[in-house]
Design a protein around this nucleic acid. Structure first.
Length: 452
RNA sequence: GGCCCCAUCGUCUAACGGUUAGGACGAAGCGUUCUCAAUGCUUAAAUCGGAGUUCGAUUCUCCGUGGGGUCACCA
């Protein structure tokens, strides 16, 4: 079911970077357009020169690209369309729906106000249903019912430029944040004055900050989406996360590919009430999406990152499985790398001999001396000597040592072995380490430790 | 405050007017285990309140309460 006539828009103002609240609106427009075979127009609303941040349009475009969200038309810049607005403004004055009022504050001309139709304005919101707002609500503090649409004939304001553009660009569906609900009747009045068809409106519930449950914004710690990308969260995981914020196709499924999201999206299933962004779910989703990528991608990411510090490729290769299960995002590999968590694989550890003795919890009351530990390590070496070089894998090492460890206290024996091999309190198990570093290195490290 | 919108576990949410109100994240506990992870199992956790309609309301209506949005010569 596609409708070639559907056309939506992305209309950001270039005033900074997007957070989840901003991009969520674009995601829903994107999903809606893709689902229905519609088109997307990109348009920068930069009529307030004072608020614009130079370069942020580029940043926003880059983010869209990184997220894999494309558009079909534009980007337009409203600042380059002043002639169009001027003509339309003049037309409204001529047809009597708007008029020039008092001098503006800047003293650069006369304000243009639009006549209040003095009626209830009703529309059927795609998400919220029928909404009625009386045009009397346009009244400002000074009691003026006719709201301002331009500072002067050369200086149009937001409501006016939006309407003119949506009309001229053939926008059929305006999907935007709930914060625009009260500006919708004003814009409908402008559409009417222009003699333009009114598009369909759908107002998405706001995303609230977990901090103070207010609309997400720079003030309450809204993190730019770019930072999540920088932290190597997957675009598809972010897309999945955002989509589920205020929308759900109706079942128990949580993991959606981009394709599935597009297939299943529908405005009817959009929630009416605001949602709070929950970062820990993103971690989980990201992990799930990494799994979807497959083993080769894991291998490549891990190799690329480890080879920045280490050169022994066969060891890097052996490290892959144990890394794979520990990470939530690619950046975690770098973090672990910097924390020295992989050093044991490439060089002998140095550690204090106290560490070889496991703590009370593991030795369960048994007295352990340096000497017993030393003997255990020597015995382990003796047993490992019996394994042929080519059969020195984790499984074989384990079966070779298991009974001995069990008889003498697994906590005592295996802890000592693991420390002797890794020098770390937290690491993969000693059998895996042995397999990674190989027979020779294993026996050398164990022997050295037994002499401490 | 006026106007508009909304209301299910802590969070995201599911449930033709009939379900022991389901799932997921997170949390807790247990199992496995030498550690950390991972994994498996288990548990706790919600229909805002009050009327009404109905044989029967999470679901429909009204009132209350609560939350959010918005009230610029910003967008």
């Amino acid at each position: 079911m596609t409708d070639k006539n559907i056309k939506v828009r992305f209309p950001p103002s270039p005033t900074g970077e997007w957070h989840f609240g901003n991009i969520r609106t674009f995601v829903f427009n994107y999903l809606f357009a893709k689902k229905n075979g519609g088109e997307i127009v990109m348009r920068f609303e930069d009529t307030d020169i004072a608020r614009n941040k130079p370069g942020s349009d580029i940043l926003q475009l880059e983010l869209l690209k990184k997220m894999g969200m494309d558009f079909d038309e534009g980007p337009y810049y409203q600042s380059q369309r002043k002639d169009i607005y001027k003509n339309e403004l003049q037309r409204l004055i001529d047809n009597g729906t708007a008029y020039e009022a008092e001098e503006n504050q800047a003293g650069t001309g006369k304000l243009i106000r639009i006549k209040n139709p003095k009626k209830d304005i009703v529309w059927n919101d795609l998400i919220k249903g029928e909404i009625t707002i009386a045009s009397d609500s346009f009244k400002d503090e000074k009691g003026n019912f006719d709201f301002i649409i331009a500072r002067s004939i050369n200086d149009p304001l937001y409501h006016f430029t939006v309407v003119v553009d949506d009309w001229l660009m053939g926008i059929t569906h305006v999907l935007r944040g709930e914060d625009h609900v009260t500006s919708t009747p004003r814009q409908m009045v402008i559409f009417e004055a222009l003699g333009a068809p009114v598009p369909l409106f759908g107002h998405l519930p706001t995303i609230l900050s977990s901090e103070n449950k207010k609309k997400l914004g720079k003030r309450n710690g809204a993190i730019p989406v770019r930072e999540y990308l920088d932290q190597t969260y997957l675009p598809d995981a972010i897309l999945n996360m955002i989509s589920l914020l205020g929308w759900n196709p109706g079942g128990d499924q949580e993991i959606f590919t981009r394709k599935e999201l597009i297939e299943k999206f529908s405005l009817e299933k959009v929630q009416k009430s605001p949602a709070i962004f929950n970062a820990s779910k993103l971690d989980w989703l990201n992990k799930e999406h990494m799994k979807l990528l497959g083993d080769e991608v894991f291998a490549k990411e891990i190799k690329d990152r480890l080879s920045k510090r280490f050169t022994n490729e066969s060891i890097i290769e052996k490290l892959i499985p144990s890394i794979k299960e520990r990470i939530v995002k690619w950046l975690d590999i770098d973090t672990m790398l910097e924390a020295g968590e992989f050093d044991f694989a490439f060089k002998s550890p140095s550690f204090d001999k106290q560490m070889l003795i496991c703590d009370e919890r593991m030795r369960k009351g048994t007295e352990v001396t340096d000497e017993t530990v030393s003997n255990h390590l020597k015995n382990i070496v003796t047993k490992l000597e019996t394994i042929p070089e080519e059969k020195f894998d984790a499984e074989t090492v384990k079966t070779t040592l298991w009974d001995y460890a069990t008889e003498n206290g697994r906590g005592i024996v295996l802890w000592a072995m693991r420390i002797a091999l890794s020098g770390r309190e937290k690491s993969p198990d000693p059998f895996q380490i042995s397999a990674i570093i190989g027979k020779t290195e294993t026996t050398v490290r164990l022997t050295n430790a037994s002499k401490l």
